[in-house]
């Protein structure tokens, strides 16, 4: 590990909540990766043993109204959540970095325009818009990812922009210009590595947001119908809240832990990289 990364890890390790977040995220990743091994059965396999409570033989977390295993559903659902979370956040981060960097580095009317557009994105109710777009274009996985990603870039863009505004006036950037470095290289090879820390923090929080949004869309029946997802499971659980609490509680726990994990991780990274929070 090289200098800055090692320093970061030494700081991060001291943060208990951050470590809890990291553990949750790693757990989620492990479950998602090992889903075929961990899940007792195919999550779509129906059986006659409908609405069995948890701890029933063969159905550790019970079964749903079609006799599908809840545990297997929760395990496979982690894949959807993680995939949508990561891919949507990656989309948002990519757009945010490019837009923010251009806006902050060049300033002027480009900056004005970009900031007004990002404000527009921030004031429209994102969930409602996602709902409309997904119901219009269909709720395939890639659509979900794109919609959530495209709706989430403004925060990253604003952070990247403010960092670029600060860094473009620093002497090391002036030195790069004096040496004759091209603007694109200055932006992405010189400045960007210095502003990644807050971007990673926002990305981590974006993942949590995306997981939540995907689950919410799923809850409204707009999840990918071909995949078993936590939101989708909540959707089907709607009619059985009274009779079969396990149908909603276990996917709910999955969503909560995943969102919590990424939030704690993000906060932990923030504290480890922000020198103002480091004291003592």
């Amino acid at each position: 590990m090289n200098g800055p990364v090692r320093d970061f890890w030494l700081q991060f390790r001291r943060n208990r909540l951050g470590m809890v977040g990291l553990a949750l995220v790693l757990l989620l990743a492990a479950v998602a990766l090992l889903a075929p091994v961990l899940a007792p059965v195919d999550p779509f396999r129906t059986s006659r043993q409908a609405l069995l409570p948890p701890m029933s033989p063969g159905f550790l977390l019970g079964s749903d109204h079609l006799g599908r295993d809840v545990l297997s559903g929760v395990i496979w659902g982690s894949r959807v959540s993680l995939l949508v979370g990561l891919a949507a956040a990656a989309t948002a981060t990519f757009i945010g970095i490019v837009v923010g960097a251009v806006s902050g580095f060049f300033g002027g009317w480009v900056d004005e325009l970009v900031m007004r557009v990002s404000e527009l994105f921030q004031i429209i109710p994102r969930f409602v818009l996602a709902l409309i777009v997904v119901s219009f274009f269909g709720s395939g996985l890639s659509n979900l990812i794109l919609v959530i990603g495209i709706l989430s870039w403004p925060q990253t863009a604003r952070i990247v922009r403010s960092q670029f505004l600060r860094h473009r006036a620093l002497p090391y950037v002036d030195s790069a210009r004096v040496l004759g470095m091209k603007p694109l290289r200055i932006m992405f090879a010189e400045i960007l590595p210095n502003v990644l820390a807050p971007v990673i923090v926002v990305a981590s929080l974006d993942i949590a947001q995306a997981i939540l949004m995907e689950a919410s869309l799923g809850f409204f029946g707009l999840g990918d119908p071909n995949l078993r997802s936590w939101g989708g499971m909540l959707n089907t659980a709607q009619g059985f809240v009274q009779r079969a609490w396990w149908m909603s509680v276990f996917p709910g726990i999955g969503i909560s832990l995943a969102v919590l994990g990424f939030n704690l991780l993000g906060d932990g990274i923030n504290e480890a990289t922000d020198p103002r929070l480091r004291e003592g």
Binding site: P4, P171, Y172, S175, V178
Partner: peptide, 13 residues
């Protein structure tokens, strides 16, 4: 050019 603030004149990363 050589700047005053040697700290910010070198890319920290």
């Amino acid at each position: 050019v050589v700047f005053q603030d040697s700290n910010s004149s070198l890319n920290p990363r």
